[in-house]
């Protein structure tokens, strides 16, 4: 006679963590989509315009003049370091990431409610891990300025999704009432 590990140990905690990280993942990738849409390659900044840093605006935003100028430099870094494939690639990857994160949120709810097999959660986390790995490969192929922005978050997400995937993988294995893995 065998039973699922999730009956044995309980999987609600994993479901809660999965939902939490799915929400953060959606927030992160939604921001990325917005960033890529807003910072379009054909823009006035490429023509070398200077930042308009009015004193009243600086006071209102609580910024120094240098910070205001560096904000424009930040955009110029994105434009100068992005290869032509990067923008459409990021929009597609982040959109896919958001959809898969919604699926993993559903998987998290299933783990809490124990109303679906953990196979669904397993597939969701594998898919999210693949998104992270593809993002990581893209990041290492960028110029140094953008690579510095993208590489570290990608590594963190790989670690997070791996940490979710392994317990779910362990839950899917069957154990006997004697505690022996079948």
């Amino acid at each position: 006679m065998t039973q699922n590990r999730e009956d044995y140990f309980g999987s609600a905690w994993l479901g809660v963590i999965a939902i939490l990280f799915a929400l953060l993942f959606i927030a992160s990738h939604s921001n990325e989509i917005l960033k890529q849409i807003v910072v379009a390659p054909v823009s006035a900044v490429e023509a070398g315009l200077h930042a308009d840093c009015r004193a009243d605006e600086l006071e209102e935003e609580d910024l120094s003049l240098q910070e205001c100028q560096l904000m424009l430099a930040n955009v110029q870094i994105i434009l100068a370091s992005s290869p032509s494939w990067f923008r459409p690639f990021q929009i597609v990857l982040s959109s896919l990431g958001c959809l898969l994160a919604i699926a993993s949120m559903n998987a998290g709810m299933s783990l809490v409610q124990k109303n679906k097999s953990s196979q669904f959660a397993l597939v969701s986390f594998v898919a999210l891990l693949l998104i992270d790995i593809v993002g990581f490969i893209a990041a290492i192929n960028l110029g140094p300025l953008l690579r510095a922005q993208y590489l570290w978050p990608q590594i963190i997400w790989i670690a997070i999704h791996l940490s979710l995937l392994i317990p779910v993988f362990a839950l899917t294995t069957k154990i006997g009432t004697d505690g022996v893995v079948k």
């Binding site: 921001n31 917005l34 849409i37 807003v38 910072v39 006035a44 900044v45 315009l49 930042a51 308009d52 840093c53 009015r54 605006e57 935003e61 910024l63 205001c68 904000m71 424009l72 930040n74 955009v75």
Partner: peptide, 21 residues
């Protein structure tokens, strides 16, 4: 969004994110 340049006549990066926000 907060790190985007301040809006000016030719710099309008903030408009879409702020409207969405």
């Amino acid at each position: 969004m907060l790190a985007l340049p301040l809006p000016a006549e030719d710099i309008s990066y903030r408009i879409l994110p702020f409207q969405l926000h």
